[in-house]
Structures are given as C-alpha cells and as structure tokens.
Write a protein that binds this DNA or RNA. Structure first.
Lengths: 334, 334
DNA sequence: CTGTTAGCGCATTCAT
DNA sequence: ATGAATGCGCTAACAG
C-alpha cells in the first residue's frame, strides 16, 4: 500500500532536530564540520530517529558533481573483464564512489550511446575497459569522452588504445615475448600464433610480442591465424594452425587457448606431446585446464584498482603499465 | 585546461533555440509530446549544436524518481553471478535503466552499507543477487529493503530467500532431484553430496533436492559434506567424500565440482570410472572440463532478465521460477 | 500549444 | 557558530 511514501528530507530533519536547514546540512554532509557538539548530536539522533537518508541526486545537483564511477565493459561474462571489474568495484567503493556498470558488447554504437546517457549523470569517473578496434573511426567516441572530460569527469581507458586519455594496461609485449621465448627454449620450432581479431589492439600487441620472442630465438611463426576472440575462435584457429604443421600454439588469450585445447582433444592430438598450447591473462580456469595451461599472468584485479587510482589522479597523460610474466605449466611440457 | 567548463543547461538550450524553458524541456525529455513541429526541430537542432545533454540527477530530483537499477551481487568473478548480471544488464538497458553494480563479497554488513548509500539515489529497482545466509539475522537488511520499497523502489531477490519481496529463482529442487535420479540410474549407489555452506539457502535447497532424488531411487547419501562454496571447498569436500567410500559426488555448484575434479585427478582417482562427479548451474566451463561435467542447466542470463521484468511488474508477492534440468555428460559416464 | 512560475532536495554564501 | 536566502538544473502545474 503505502508506497510512494516520500522519504524524509533535509527539511524534515531540520525540523525534527529543531535546527536550521543549513545546520542540518552541515552535520550530515560532512564538509568542513563547524557545528557545535550539542547540535551535532541532536541532528544525528533526529536523523536516525526519522531514518533520514540524503538524496544523492539532489546533492549532485547542488554540488554540480556526483559520486558515480561509470564503468563500460565489453563483456562481463568474460573472466578477464569480470576480474578487472571486481578490482574497479573494490577500489571505487573504497573511495566512496558508486559504480555503474554497462556492457558494450564490443559494439561501438552501444558504447557511444551508453556514454551519452551516462554522461547525463555527470559522473566523477569514466572507465573504458576492453580494447578498441583499431580500424573503426573513434572520433565520435573521442569527442564524447572529451565532452565528459570537460564536464569534469576523469576518464581512463584500460588496455591498449590510441585515445588521448589516461590509460592502464598490462605489459603485454614483455609477457608475450617472454612466453614465446620460453616455448622456443622448450624445443618448439614450428610455432603458430592464434592472433584473434586483426583489429583488436590488445590482440595485436600480444601477437607482436610473440613475434619478437620468436625472433629472439631465431624463429619465425609458421602461421598467424586470425579469428574470433572467444572460445570458438580458438577452436577454429587451432585446427587451422595444426593443419599448417604447428607444434606449438600461442593464443592471445586464455579463452581462445581453452578452446584450442578442447579442439585438439577432440582430434586426438595430444598436448603437450604433439602440440604445446599457451594462453594469456592466466584466468582462474587456466590452472584448472587439462593439461594445465601455460599463460601470462596478469593481476587483473590490480589492473582494475590501478585504473581508478589513475583516474582519480586526473592526469590525462598518465599511462600506467602493470607487469605481465609467463606462468609455465603442463600445456607446454613444463 | 578548460576543465570545469560547465555543460550547457536546459536554460542555455532554450535561449539558443529561442523558446521557453518549458518548451525545451518538453521536447528533450519526451513526456507527452505536445510541441509543434517547427519548435521541435529548432530545439533539437539547437540541442546538438550546443551539445546539450540532460542532467539526469536534476531530472531525478524534479521527478522524484530516477532511472537507476541497483544491482547487488555476491561476487562478480563467479561465472554464475557474472552470467546473471549480464542478463540484468541487458534487460535493464532495454528498459532505459542504468545499472549500478556493487559486490557484497557475501558480507551482510557490506550489503547493508551498500544498500544505504544506494538508497540515496532513490533507485527505481533494487536487485539482490546471491542467496542469503539463513542463519544470519536479516531483519536489518529487511528493514532497509522495506525502506527502499517505501521510497518507491521495486525490489526483487534472485535465488532462494526468506524475505518478503518478489523473487526469481531456478527450480533447484527439481533439477537436483532429476540429476540425483539420473546418477542413481547410472548405477551409482554410494553417492555423496558436496553440500557447500550449511547456511546458504540455495545450497541447502539443492542438497535437499539431491536427497529427494536419491530417496526416490531407494538410496541414502553415504555422506553429506559441508564446506566452502568455492573451488577449494570442492576439493576438500571431494577428498572427504571419497574417503567415506563414495562412488559419486553431487556438488551444489559447478565451481565446487570443478574443484572436486581437479582434486580427484591429483589423487589419481579416475572420473567417471571410479567416481562420478556432477555440478550445478552449467556454467560455460562445465562443458569444457575434462571429463565434461554433468550438471543442471539453468539459463542464467534469462534468470537475470526475468529479475528485472518481475521487479518492473511491482508485485511483491511474485515468485517466479525458471526451469532447471540435468545435462548429462562424461563425468557421470554418459 | 506555449510560456510563467513554483517547487524538487540540498549546498552554500551572506549576514548575524 | 548558526540561520535566512539564493541557486543548482529540471519538471509540472498553472495560466494564457
């Protein structure tokens, strides 16, 4: 029944406590507390007596800024993004920020649309997680972000990108290079790269790192196969790579590597005896795979936490990099 | 430089378009459009000329209600919650709602605290995902939810619970029963239940279902071992269960089952030859496990979508149930 | 159908 | 240190 029973307002609080609006405001919002103790307690007591809860939207209007951290993520079901999101969530809440999360589905149009509506809330932070296609025109996106920036939001992009904003990413190149070198050192000479989408910047950065590592070992990839970023993409790519005679498959992420493993298993191809397989990100499932998947470890949650820290710092030219190093397991015969 | 460059307001828009505030408002906010075409276009053109974007907080204040859907989730890294969240996100956005996501870490105090701050935004929807401990006093939580309800929010709880609010959950009992029966029919007679936390209502509902299924097959569980909900909990429980002589392990969720698989593998115990293992939820990783994990399939994203639909319906006594049925795979010898 | 005006809940300057 | 008054950006009667 009694639904639209309006919550008590600051006015109600003031009246209940027998003080002025201003005084009530000063004690419940914090600011530079300059309220005498007796008044303080009266207000505080009155507050929980009537169950007062500040209307954050009204605060945002009056203050001209909100306590929202807007998070845009490609796909929350992907363990990679889920982990980063967890980090963002923790760090944001520690800063007293409420995080809004929207999934872009990797579609630029949705990304843009979401950014627009979110902008309406005048968020304090805007975090873009998930690498951008390198081929798509990002000018619209860039404009929108710039707009948000002007409106007072600090924006940071997680992952590789070419946007003029602060960024946080893993040291993909180093991790990839080291992993490729380790695989070469393990005696594989015909290694293929499961490169994922050709226009995904993170994927290409990792593929480049693989190449560099192989080169350092005096090798050239026997194949570089592109495809979907997901598990089915990994399956298809794996099949194509072994068809090309590969004895090692370096995937640009764990999910693809897992797909590769399952495809190889179905084909009766033994890992690591016949073909070695590696992933990237070291998601939880990597260690549990059979055989356990060699990968490149990245502290995903830390990545998320750093993202909000960097955003809060407010330096557009910041470009933080978190470490990424190989974790060698059974899938490479280690 | 020009950072705190205040975004254009409705007032600016009106001036730019040469119309009144009210007219400008009418065209940009939609409502029952009663604006003559010529005016409409003038406002619209002016809008994107100056890059006008409505201040949603201000709208919320003026309207007395927001377009926010507040989502509280136990652990976003858990594939189960991630999938449900994805469904919620999609459905909410389809309704023009922005979703805020907070992770409770399964701690009641955080849950309560988050609910309080979120309440400050006067959200339109509040979704609680993740089953509640049955032992903890939920009165505070209940009060808080009731408060939100009074303030105009529609609240729905996903999963089993004992709260007087709308709910959406999977038909765990049926799914569990059917799975247990299938395992029994496959010739297992000494089945153990990896029951998870004794005070997690979803876990107990599933365990009860297992019991019922075994009973129907004339069996009694040889062991019911409680423990953590996660993968390590599954490992420990599995070891204890096989110690008790079990030839089948029914876990209350996939993550635990996956942990069980890995523990058994390390011990050299063969699945399904020596011991059958089953999970619950049928997360993506279940089908990829080795051996492929038998589980109970639930359309997790649909669960999330239904949650917002039910919430929007606004009926506190709604109690929707989505289907759950076994998916038999190699881990049970199917 | 359009414009005026009075709030919405709160922060904050300005007097006191 | 406190209170009265003004404004934040927007919506919703209310008149015209």
């Amino acid at each position: 029944m009694a639904r639209p029973d309006a919550p008590p307002t600051l006015y109600d609080l003031a009246r209940e406590a027998g003080v002025s609006l201003a005084t009530a405001s000063r004690v419940v919002n914090g600011s530079t507390r300059k309220v005498a103790e007796p008044y303080r307690v009266r207000v505080l007591e009155a507050a929980d007596r009537i169950g007062y809860r500040a209307n954050l939207s009204a605060q945002a209007v009056a203050r001209g800024t909100s306590r929202l951290a807007a998070l845009l993520v490609s796909d929350i079901v992907d363990p990679f993004f889920a982990a980063v999101t967890a980090g963002v969530s923790r760090a944001a809440e520690a800063e007293g920020l409420l995080v809004t999360m929207s999934v872009t589905d990797r579609r630029s149009d949705r990304e843009l649309e979401l950014l627009r509506t979110i902008g309406g809330f005048r968020p304090r932070l805007v975090l873009l997680i998930g690498s951008r296609r390198t081929t798509e025109p990002s000018s619209e996106l860039e404009d929108e972000l710039r707009e948000l920036r002007r409106a007072g939001a600090d924006v940071v992009v997680v992952g590789h990108h070419r946007l003029p904003f602060a960024s946080v990413r893993a040291d993909d190149t180093t991790g990839a290079r080291e992993l490729a070198e380790a695989v070469a050192a393990a005696g594989r000479s015909r290694v293929a790269i499961l490169a994922g989408p050709a226009d995904l910047s993170t994927a290409t950065a990792r593929a480049e790192g693989f190449r560099a590592g192989l080169r350092a070992a005096g090798l050239d990839p026997v194949a570089v196969v592109h495809g979907e970023f997901g598990r089915s993409g990994g399956r298809a790519a794996a099949l194509e790579a072994v068809g090309a005679g590969a004895d090692a498959l370096l995937a640009v992420n764990d999910v693809m590597a897992l797909g590769a493993l399952s495809a190889l298993r179905e084909r009766g191809i033994r890992v690591p005896e016949q073909v070695a397989v590696t992933g990237f990100d070291d998601i939880a499932a990597a260690a549990d795979a059979v055989p356990a998947l060699s990968s490149v470890r990245i502290d995903l949650e830390a990545l998320g936490e750093r993202a909000v820290a960097v955003a809060l710092a407010g330096d557009d030219s910041a470009a933080e990099v978190v470490p990424a190093h190989p974790v060698l397991r059974a899938s490479t015969g280690h």
